[in-house]
Amino acid sequence: MAQLFWDDVEIGMEIPPYKKAVTLMELNRYAGANEEYVLIHMDRDYSQKVARLPDVIVMGNLKYAYLSNMMINWIGEEGTLKRLSAQYRGMDIPGPALSTEPTMICKGKVTNKYIQDGDHCIECEVWTETNEGQVTTPGSAIAILPARS
């Protein structure tokens, strides 16, 4: 993928969306890699009957990882992610097994660009949306990009 340069970024510019079909497979794989064995991410009975949730829910840490994937894919290898924050405000429910239909979409847009201590910085608003367009994970990001000049 072509490298993104600071010069070519404008305030208001949209980050290419990152879509994900999240199923229990993705949750289980992440639970293993992150040693995050928490029942509300694993067991539907527990989620509904004990935790009183509508279903198993996608772990916040995995939604964070997807937002970071979106940023890393966009800023490229010469870009440097400096800060990324995400707030888990709403629930994301995994889709059916083997489904390839996206259940969530990471989106973002550029809110600021500036030069600080010689670094060419950008700030972005980022978030995840459900298929119904509900924002479940608002956040923000700061990155340093290479400059052409």
Binding site: I40, A51, M59, N61, K82, L84, S85, A86, Q87, Y88
Partner: peptide
Amino acid sequence: ARVGMNGGNDYEY
């Protein structure tokens, strides 16, 4: 607690 949840992450790299 009845249920514990992650409210947010903010990482500085």
